[in-house]
C-alpha cells in the first residue's frame, strides 16, 4: 500500500473525481464568474484576483506530522492548510468524508464567524477559495450551493462553500483561502440608488 505522502504526491495534478461524471465540464456560467454579488459591492474591476499562494501546493513533506495509530486510520486523514483572513496559514486535519466546515469547527473555530448556519446552506460565512486544480477535480457545486454562493462577498472563480466541500484522500495538502473582504464593504452605503 502506498503511504499517505506518496498518495498525495502522485495524485497531483488531480484527475476528475470518480463518481462525478460532469466534474470537469465547467458550469456554463462559471466562465464569467469573477464577480461581486448583485448588490453587495461596488468595486471597480469586479475581479477578485486569486491569492498566489493557492496556486503553489506545498509538498506533503513540509507539513507538520500528525501521529496516527494505524495505517488504516492514516489513510483516512487529510491535512488541509487554511489561509486565514489575516493571511496566516493554519494546518488542520479531518477524516475523509467530513466537510471542510467540520474540520474548521473541530479545530476550535479559528476562523471567526465561520459556519453561521451550521452547514445548512443558508449563510455564505463558510466561503473559501480553492486551488484551481482542486476546484476542477471536485464535483460541481449543486444549484442550491450556486444560489447561495451568488450572495457571497468576493465571489471568485474557484469559490466554494466549505460546508459543501467533502474531504477526499486526494485533497491532502490542499491550501484553502478564507476571503478577506472587509475592503469590499466600504462602498456599500453609496450603492447606486435610483431616484424614481
Amino acid at each position: 500500500m502506498i503511504s499517505l505522502g506518496q498518495a498525495t504526491f502522485q495524485s497531483w495534478p488531480p484527475k476528475p473525481e470518480a463518481g462525478c461524471a460532469s466534474s470537469i465540464v465547467k458550469h456554463p456560467s462559471l466562465a464569467h464568474l469573477i464577480y461581486p454579488p448583485t448588490r453587495l459591492s461596488s468595486f471597480s474591476s469586479g475581479l477578485v484576483p486569486l491569492p498566489h499562494i493557492l496556486l503553489n501546493l506545498t509538498p506533503w513533506k513540509r507539513m507538520p506530522s500528525i501521529s496516527l495509530k494505524s495505517r488504516e486510520l492514516k489513510m483516512r486523514w487529510v491535512n488541509i492548510c487554511l489561509l486565514n483572513r489575516d493571511g496566516k496559514p493554519l494546518w488542520m486535519s479531518g477524516r475523509v468524508g467530513e466537510t471542510l466546515l467540520n474540520v474548521v469547527m473541530n479545530a476550535n473555530g479559528p476562523v471567526e464567524g465561520y459556519g453561521a448556519c451550521e452547514g445548512t446552506l443558508a449563510c455564505t460565512t463558510c466561503h473559501v477559495y480553492l486551488p484551481t486544480e482542486a476546484y476542477e477535480r471536485m464535483c460541481q457545486p449543486t444549484e442550491d450551493e450556486l444560489d447561495m454562493l451568488d450572495l457571497a462577498v468576493g465571489l471568485a472563480e474557484t469559490s466554494r462553500l466549505g460546508c459543501q466541500v467533502v474531504l477526499k484522500p486526494w485533497m491532502d495538502g490542499m491550501r484553502v483561502q478564507v476571503p478577506k473582504h472587509t475592503a469590499d464593504l466600504r462602498g456599500l452605503a453609496d450603492d447606486g440608488k435610483m431616484e424614481g
Binding site: L40, G113, C123, T125, H127, V153, T182, L185, L188
Partner: peptide
C-alpha cells in the same frame, strides 16, 4: 452602512 446586506455582510 445603511439597511443593506445579509447577515454575512453585517458580520464582516
Amino acid at each position: 452602512r445603511g439597511p443593506q446586506g445579509v447577515i454575512a455582510t453585517t458580520m464582516n
